[in-house]
Amino acid sequence: MENEKSRAMGRAYVIEGILFFTYAFFAVNWIAGSTLTAEIAKFFGVDSAASSSFVSNAVTIAKIIGNFLAAGILNKLLPKKSIAIGGGLIFVGSLLAVFSNSYLMFILGRFVMGFGGAVFVIYFAPVVIHYFTDEQKPTINALNSVAYNFGAVLALLIVKPVIEIMKTWQKSMGFFTAISGLLFIFWSIFGEDFELNKTGTNEEKINYTISDTLKDKVTWLLPFSYSGVLILYLTLLQLFPRIEGAAITTSKLSALTGIGGIIGTLFAIVLSKNTIRENLSLLFVVLL
């Protein structure tokens, strides 16, 4: 019995690792493309500022569409195929961008990649709910939330050396595309399906509709709470560095944000083990 539990938990951590690094390298690949914007724009003969804006808009639209469609895909195809679609789109979009022969195709590749990332990130939650205990869930959820930030810090360390070795933007982005492809293969091997919407000791299936979701105050509270932070993040990364005479580059801002996110996540993991009263007391001490 203990051996079965150990094997099951080992598989859970393998699956969690594949998901975490797939999304982290999505971030690395995305930041690599942003770092190479000037070279890519020159290759296609377009303005670099316009290039950055078009790609940013493309991924924003992709994320909106992807987030709305993700739940429907999951309910119809179950986790293994759904996660494979997200990871596959990240890989295919990256591949399309690398081998594009026009700027329009490059934007399409980034759109597909962004769509895959938006779909993929939604599937962290059901995996955590299924594989991990109530005591483990806060820690695993916190780690998943920082996957992109981890990728941003990793990008700071490896993107520049890879570009120097590979020389061209196609080979540089192709290197990270290959890693995404490898992680997609790993998921195809180790990923598995499980039933959704089950709860309780008798594993009774519950029916939670979109109407129920819209009536839940948490559905509205969390996005509005997070929107302020996201607006600040996008402003820092997209607008501030373009101001003439800006004191810091986009890459440094991204790295600082990523490091701050990792530190905040570690802090949140510690707080998750405390009671609300203990957390408020600690916050009061910090503020003082």
Rank of each mutant, 00 (worst) to 15 (best):
M1K: 10
N3C: 01
A12C: 03
G17N: 08
F20S: 06
F20Q: 03
A24R: 06
A24W: 09
N29E: 12
W30Q: 13
S34W: 10
T35F: 12
V46L: 03
S56E: 08
A62T: 06
N67R: 09
G72W: 04
L74S: 10
G87H: 15
L89K: 08
I90P: 06
S94A: 12
L95N: 07
L96N: 01
L96K: 02
V98A: 03
N101V: 09
Y103E: 03
L104W: 07
M105A: 14
F106C: 04
L108D: 03
L108W: 07
R110E: 00
M113G: 05
F115Q: 05
G116Y: 00
G117H: 09
V119I: 13
F120A: 09
I122N: 13
Y123P: 10
F132P: 02
D134I: 06
D134V: 14
E135T: 05
K137W: 04
N141T: 08
N141P: 01
N144A: 07
V146P: 04
A147S: 13
N149E: 02
L154T: 11
L154V: 10
A155R: 01
L156P: 00
L157G: 07
K160Y: 09
V162E: 03
E164L: 15
E164S: 15
M166Y: 13
K167P: 01
W169P: 12
K171W: 03
F175R: 02
A178Q: 07
A178S: 13
S180M: 13
S180T: 12
F186Y: 11
I189Q: 07
D193R: 02
T199V: 13
T201G: 11
K205I: 06
I206D: 00
S211I: 06
L214K: 01
V218I: 09
W220E: 03
L221T: 06
F224R: 00
G228H: 02
I231D: 11
E244D: 11
E244W: 00
A247M: 06
I248A: 06
T249D: 12
A255I: 02
T257P: 08
G258P: 10
I262L: 11
I263P: 00
F267M: 04
A268W: 05
I269K: 05
R277P: 00
N279L: 01
L288P: 03
